[in-house]
Design a protein around this nucleic acid. Sequence first.
DNA 1: CATGGACAAAGTGTATACAAAAATGATGAG
DNA 2: CTCATCATTTTTGTATACACTTTGTCCATG
Lengths: 232, 232
Amino acid sequence: MKQRGGRVEAIYAGLRLAILEQVLEPGTKLPEDTIGEQFGASRTVVRRALELLASEELIEFRLNRGAAVCKPTLEEARDLFSVRQEIEQLVVRRLCGRLTRAQLKRLHAQIDLEDAAHKNGHNAYIRHAAEFHLALAEMTGSQLLARYMRQLVGRSALVLGLYGRPRWTDCSVQEHRDLVASLADGNIALVEKLMHHHLEAVLTRAIETAGKDKTGGLRDLLAPYAEAAKAT
Amino acid sequence: MKQRGGRVEAIYAGLRLAILEQVLEPGTKLPEDTIGEQFGASRTVVRRALELLASEELIEFRLNRGAAVCKPTLEEARDLFSVRQEIEQLVVRRLCGRLTRAQLKRLHAQIDLEDAAHKNGHNAYIRHAAEFHLALAEMTGSQLLARYMRQLVGRSALVLGLYGRPRWTDCSVQEHRDLVASLADGNIALVEKLMHHHLEAVLTRAIETAGKDKTGGLRDLLAPYAEAAKAT
DNA sequence: CATGGACAAAGTGTATACAAAAATGATGAG
DNA sequence: CTCATCATTTTTGTATACACTTTGTCCATG
């Protein structure tokens, strides 16, 4: 017995990454033995990892039917983004004009990562973009804001994976660059506007488009309603 | 074996209540067997309940040393209240002038509960006051805001229990009444000001006073630092 | 008398066993 | 051919056993 508590963390991190990068799509079942076999751990420790993910609402438990990757409804998605708008505003208001040179450097480096991943078409792009927003929250020094942002970007990735079309990520990198530039300048009004538009744009590129594009998005879009109708 | 998933919820709810009403004080150890014996459940199910509480940061796990009620540091307390200020502002901005008659009725009823508990000196007062803020968040219709508020008021109760003096609750009831009145009027500026002052007042009555009152508060105030020094 | 280390007691971390529930698939009636 | 019913299989929910860590005590030793 390897008496190390780090193993649940490892499984948690692995599964979380797989969900954020959309390797595990919403709705995917997560049987405990299968995962345990993969990671070489018993169901006990797998379950703990799953419960961590459930506390972030990335997966959900159904009674006696195990865990599955969450499928947020459209309503939940709208709630998520409206709250995220407000939290992100709190973050940039705290940061505007107060970023150190080292922090700016870190942000630029993060954006470069996004850029590289984006050009390679790698699905790690989603994660890097999420980490940019998380980095901003962490720079406020508030553990709580960082914690909330971590959950928000995680859940956002889920929503974008569900309702977004394949190439929803266009242009987002430049928006990040503009945002950091304005944060450095300390132009609070512009920063708030940029962040607002950035998040609106992400949402538009994802959800709104999904409604019009019938090829891939609509099917997933309607799936929750179909299931709801079947349940009642 | 009673195959009901509701048992972990029951233990979770019971422990949470005990913590919020300060029956279980910060620092109290929570041995799994003891709790399991009390609630008539095995360690497995107790552990799940404890992990739920840990995800709200009401308790914390120390490696190989089990769970204990959290003792937020002063820094964490300040972070908590500064973020809570901002979240509560988001809540009242969403509600101002939009409360239905039924909602107002519910809020008044909630305040009456506080009042009654307060006059009886009952420690249930803390919980009722917390539920008032939670009720506001729920009325926004945002699941996320409600969720965050639930965590925030829970953790606040912990902080107030740690750093607050015995009679820190004075006058808070009237502040709640004034707040609801302004919400009904739709006077957004006044509402924001009242909520801000209310939370500041709670903090002042608790933390600030603790620093000046050397009889009980200061000891607890310094305890975290003493432990931190011992650890390093 | 203080200090340090061995030992015992308590309690956690993990694996595993077993019962109940759900998913699956086969069988038969209409 | 379709649908319902029932047995089988899979998987979860919970209890329990065991190993390891921590912690407190006591005794030997400087």
